[in-house]
């Protein structure tokens, strides 16, 4: 089983490339004022979005009707939020990272982590992937991997994509055991923070040390 060693002095940004908000989270780090003071690392997290409502025991018809309406409201809201995140990325609706594209992209993120690649290198990879097209599949990611010369330094080979899914799952379970519930999240000094918007709090912690 793969267990990654995480350094608590580093800021770990946990992302799911299928979700535009995760990519926005990475871009938000471009101008993060504390970048020079703390090592920023990136890892993928592959879990279905949190939905605690499915665990609620069935209730009376009115209760079930409320649950359904609230779930529908949540989906409608999520659509709005996706549009905003795509706007932040300079993309329009219809943008999509396919399952195979995300699998390959996440695998590259793990390799970059293992090789202690800089945040700039990670951002270079992600931004190049974003530039290519609206629908990002494994072929597109592969093109970028080749163009950036990541294949040689990542050790990634085309043929073993599927064999690498288990390590993404193992990694996600490891992160979950450390308090990560969804992506994007931040992990700093052993504490998980849901959402990248907690950067100001992390800044404050760094400033006060």
């Amino acid at each position: 089983m793969m267990v990654l060693s995480l350094d608590e002095s580093e800021l770990l940004v946990v992302v799911n490339l299928e979700d535009p908000e995760s990519i926005v989270a990475l871009y938000s780090l471009l101008h993060w004022p504390k970048r020079a003071m703390v090592e920023v690392r990136v890892l993928p997290f592959l879990k279905a979005p949190l939905n605690t409502a499915t665990d609620v025991p069935k209730g009376a018809p009115a209760f079930e009707a409320y649950k359904a309406r609230r779930a529908s409201a949540r989906r409608r809201y999520q659509d709005q939020e996706n549009v905003r995140n795509l706007e932040r990325l300079g993309r329009s609706g219809g943008w999509e990272m396919t399952d195979s594209g995300a699998l390959l992209g996440h695998d590259i993120l793990i390799e970059l982590f293992l090789r202690k690649a800089s945040l700039d290198r990670v951002l270079e990879f992600v931004s190049e992937v974003l530039k290519v097209t609206q629908k990002i599949d494994a072929r597109v990611v592969n093109q970028v991997v080749g163009a950036l010369g990541l294949r040689s330094d990542s050790g990634f080979e085309d043929h073993d994509v599927l064999t690498r899914r288990p390590r993404l799952i193992e990694l996600s379970e490891q992160l979950e055991s450390q308090g990560v519930l969804s992506a994007p999240s931040l992990l700093f000094r052993g504490e998980a923070y849901l959402g990248y918007g907690h950067l100001p709090q992390i800044e404050s912690m760094i400033a006060s040390q």
């Binding site: 905003r84 932040r88 959402g195 918007g197 100001p200 709090q201």
Partner: peptide
């Protein structure tokens, strides 16, 4: 201008 990123307000900062 550009749409801001998300940020939980942290008062002392």
């Amino acid at each position: 201008g550009e749409m801001p990123f998300l940020r939980f307000p942290w008062l002392p900062e």
